[in-house]
Nucleic acid binder design. Structure first.
Lengths: 227, 227
DNA sequence: ACCTGAACACCGTTCAAGT
DNA sequence: ACCTGAACACCGTTCAAGT
């Protein structure tokens, strides 16, 4: 009773959830680099040490932030075959990751999975075994999918070439001399989709291309395993 | 002439190469976290600011370190088909990465490829086009392989469960309750290869499994593309 | 002209002093 | 018992003063 009144009269008290959501919000808007304990405290109108009442240290904060993202991933569909269910869920994971651009980098920095991530992996394994996969094949398939399971692109560089800075012609010619194969590929690809200004690749297409390449291969392995 | 004598009489002067090799050595032995400009300077018996004569800043240092690793990857074999050549080269890249455990994490933190990395990608593209792939298919295949091209495992967590700390039975039972599918998978897998103590997975096997899954799929796409 | 010590503006976290 | 300001041990990098 008196607690409720206090919430209304004083500023909302800190809680682990409020700390995590503020951290996610800060990272969403200003990037992972802007996220420091001191900065987050300032954002919450609180002294830095106050955070340590709700998270043991920065690592635990980052783990909690990852959990927020992973919890946004849709649960498995149960009204379809394993392949569509896995595909849809991974695409849902990708959407969650795109909503929080810092998440993949932060996730890569973690060394141990949180319970939330473990649960996600657990249900992913179950999708395969429920779909008729042997334990052995499920094991290898989980390794093969790896971080793609949570929507990682695994591109070599997601450098997001700034669309504001146009490519200067002399740069292209220098590139053609130094990297003839990259140049030839770039020229062909950018000539194709005139819809897109500049040499942008269609990230969503490439993600699904790679995902389907894996899933088709996995389907074939399953058939071979059964036969 | 006099320069040569000077090298012998004074301590070896700094050079970009000496800085980079010392940085790689430091990261190899003490991990990427130990690598600070100040610590590296101390290791070289030099004042921190002396480093800035040879690298513009820490980002450039990290780029240079990545280059050292990428330059260790074998050139493409020319005496075999595209599939074996690509496979062998990626396995060579993986060996380079295993020699420098910090490299994958550092590489993930870079946003723009260095010329050395560009050259590697260029020659990788050429391996496909020389092997008879269309430009379009080469493009998609490069995206699909992604960071696996330089030997990345892309595991969700490469946590390297400390072999010194044995798994406690009560932990396993708790795990069985919370994550039944992971537990079942773990139990089956660890029971199989009695050769390995504990629940270790065979990283090399899983890497080649995933790589071959991709390469087989790619081969099939190529056949479909031609037909 | 070159080199470098001190300083700046940050970190995450500890700890003791204050309420 | 709780909270928090100051302090500690670091960062990467700037800059002015010294040779």
């Amino acid at each position: 009773m008196s607690a409720e009144i206090e919430i209304q009269t004083t500023r909302t008290p800190l809680s682990r959830e409020r700390v995590l959501l503020a951290a996610v919000d800060l990272a969403d808007h200003e990037g992972a680099d802007a996220l420091s304990m001191r900065r987050l405290a300032a954002e919450l109108g609180v002294v830095p040490m106050a955070l340590y009442k709700h998270v043991a240290n920065k690592d635990e904060l980052l783990d909690g932030m990852i959990d927020v993202v992973v919890e946004e991933i849709d649960p498995p569909r149960t009204d379809t075959d394993w392949k569509s269910a896995v595909r849809d869920r991974i695409l849902s994971a990708r959407r969650a990751l795109l909503r929080h651009p810092w998440a993949s980098r932060v996730m890569e920095s973690r060394t141990r999975p949180t319970p939330t991530v473990m649960s996600y992996m657990d249900s992913m394994i179950q999708m395969f075994t429920d779909g008729g996969f042997s334990i052995d094949l499920t094991h290898h398939v989980m390794h093969a999918l790896g971080s793609r399971m949570i929507g990682f692109t695994q591109e070599l560089f997601n450098d997001q070439t700034d669309p504001d800075t146009p490519i200067r012609p002399e740069m292209l010619e220098a590139m053609g001399a130094a990297y003839p194969s990259i140049y030839r590929l770039w020229k062909t690809v950018s000539h194709e989709d005139e819809t897109i200004v500049g040499p942008g690749c269609d990230d969503q297409f490439e993600f699904e291309f790679a995902l389907d390449l894996m899933l088709d291969g996995i389907e074939r392995l399953k058939a071979a395993d059964a036969g």
